[in-house]
Design a protein around this nucleic acid. Structure first.
Length: 493
RNA sequence: GCCGGCUUAGCUCAGUUGGUUAGAGCGCUUGAUUGUGGAUCAAGAGGUCCCUGGUUCGAACCCAGGAGCUGGUACCA
């Protein structure tokens, strides 16, 4: 490299599907997480934290193969050649933890967890490759009572997160009901595995595609708006009728839904078991005051296909919001959960029943934000302006006094003149600026500028000169009254 | 993954039927105001016109490939 090369400048950019977050959003999310985990804790769940990485085989089905080691998950090979992956949810790590520490844990083991998870897939609106989940799970408790508790707590958590009652609904179905349906529809044979999958996926799309779209997917297939064709399940007309009737068993009342289900899939053994669990859950929930407005049996809920073995839940927002271009946005699911009796078995060989729920915090937060418009700006710190750098200690002392009184405060440490310092305070959303120049110091005083009031008054500003001379939002107080005066101004707004 | 649209200043976008110095609004910087943010006025900075290759005397514009964004769809533990 004798020749001088053009200096390499990396492009400053965030990776696809990831994002930077700051200020108000983080503060709001932290508060939301705290409210949710308070609910979990109040039900007797304890916190657990597990690492971001797990050995890939512990995580489950995504064993990296030579061709696509990162399909769905982010994976890398440790220096001992073992594959590790970033966790894609908090449930698989829980199963690993329980299996690893099984003998020492009180069963049922009840834990909640907050953590980031990563998925290596196409990002979309409101879908990122890194996001935060907030889960609670009971391990070692069989259906249906633990499931009922989770459903109830799930509703409480969504409400605590800030969704008013009536603006969400927890929809519940049961994997056993679906097995019953597949029995009755004659789809339980070995060779029909593929058809079963396609059928369940089609059912999951009822809310989005409507009856007509789902019927197409149950039959030959469906062409979407972009002209892309999706292969269908190729069911016969009779089979499709049964599936549609199953979903139509979803009534406004859980009791009616249960009774309608008996007619459709009561003939199947698996179906009966599912119906019994649903009936028990619905009855208990209703006795506890969780009626259909909060918890609704809904036969179109499918959720992930891999590990659920019993009841499955989904939390849906029922209000509509518009995006910044005025188009309606469907937020849909902001969390889910269900029963997974076989997850720990993968490690232990021994069946360990488990059930849990998960709130997608970032999604929920952006939904609430979209509805309520921009979040109220967080108030910035009090800014102590600097006139004379030689007297920095005086300014720092003022800030220190404010801090020990519990008020956020910072001394301006940039290099700019006084006008710029005011601009800085403005941009930081500071409520108050503290000013002490030569004159104030000589009198043992400081000036307080009420920036919030000033902003309000400035709406009527016409003559900048008069404005500057009057300084209506500014007043002097004795130096020793600093904290008291700031408190007073803060209390105004 | 598949199908479409888009990519020009920090942001929102105009423009060029292929021709010399590529524009606006907002924002930013500086000044009018050596000690006062938000109004007003003035000046200024800021662009590999997404990347690579091709066609052409000449490409930001046309063509091909790629990337990113976006909408739909598929998958989603």
């Amino acid at each position: 490299m004798a020749k001088k090369q053009k200096e390499f400048r990396p492009k400053a950019r965030v990776p696809r599907g990831f994002r930077d977050r700051l200020g108000e959003e983080l503060i709001a999310e932290k508060a939301m997480l705290e409210r949710i985990t308070d609910v979990y804790a109040s039900y007797g769940f304890d916190p657990l934290e597990t690492p971001a990485f797990e050995y890939t085989d512990a995580l489950g089905k995504f064993l990296p193969d030579v061709d696509r080691p990162n399909q769905g998950v982010f994976s890398l090979q440790d220096d001992d050649e073992q594959w590790m992956s970033l966790r894609y949810d908090l449930t698989a790590p829980l199963a690993r933890f329980v299996a690893e520490n099984f003998d020492g844990l009180a069963k049922p083991f009840r834990r909640y967890a907050v953590g980031r998870v990563w998925r290596n897939e196409k990002p979309g609106p409101g879908r990122f490759r890194e996001f935060t989940q907030c889960d609670a799970d009971s391990v070692g408790a069989p259906a249906p009572h633990a499931d009922t508790e989770i459903a109830m707590m799930f509703a409480d958590a969504v409400e605590a997160a800030g969704v008013p009652r009536g603006d969400y609904v927890i929809r519940i179905s049961d994997r056993k009901l679906m097995n019953g349906l597949l029995d009755v529809a004659g789809l339980s044979g070995e060779e029909q595995a593929e058809q079963r999958l396609v059928t369940l996926r089609a059912m999951d799309k009822l809310d989005r595609l409507g009856e007509e779209g789902v019927r197409q997917l149950l039959g030959e297939g469906r062409k979407d708006e972009s002209g892309d064709f999706t292969d269908g399940a190729k069911l016969s007309g009779d089979q499709a009728d049964i599936v549609m009737a199953f979903m139509a068993a979803t009534k406004g009342s859980n009791e009616e839904t249960v009774s309608a289900l008996k007619d459709i899939i009561g003939a199947s053994e698996a179906g009966q078991a599912g119906i019994a669990d649903m009936a028990s859950m619905a009855e208990t929930l209703s006795a506890l005051g969780y009626d259909e407005k909060r918890v609704l049996l809904d036969m179109s809920i499918v959720r992930g296909l891999e590990y659920y073995t019993g009841p499955v839940f989904e939390a849906d927002l029922t209000f509509e919001v518009a995006d910044e271009k005025g188009r309606p946005v469907r937020f849909g699911s902001v969390g889910g959960g269900g029963r997974y009796d076989d997850l720990v078995k993968r490690f232990k060989g021994q069946e360990v029943p488990a059930v849990g729920c998960s709130v997608g915090v970032s999604r929920l937060l952006s939904a609430l934000q979209a509805r309520e418009g921009a979040m109220p700006k967080a108030t910035g710190p009090v800014i102590v302006t600097v006139f004379d750098k030689a007297r920095m200690a005086d300014y720092q002392l003022m800030a220190a006094e404010l801090r020990s009184a519990g008020i956020r405060a910072e001394v301006y440490l940039g290099g700019s003149n006084f006008g710029k310092q005011m601009k800085y305070a403005d941009k930081r959303d500071a409520p108050v600026a503290i000013i002490q120049g030569e004159d104030e110091r000589a009198n043992g005083e400081i000036q307080l500028k009420d920036l919030v009031l000033g902003a309000k008054l400035s709406k009527e500003i016409e003559d900048n000169k008069a404005w500057r001379e009057d300084q209506p939002a500014q007043f002097s107080v004795p130096r020793e009254k600093l904290v008291e005066a700031v408190r007073e101004v803060l209390a105004r707004h």
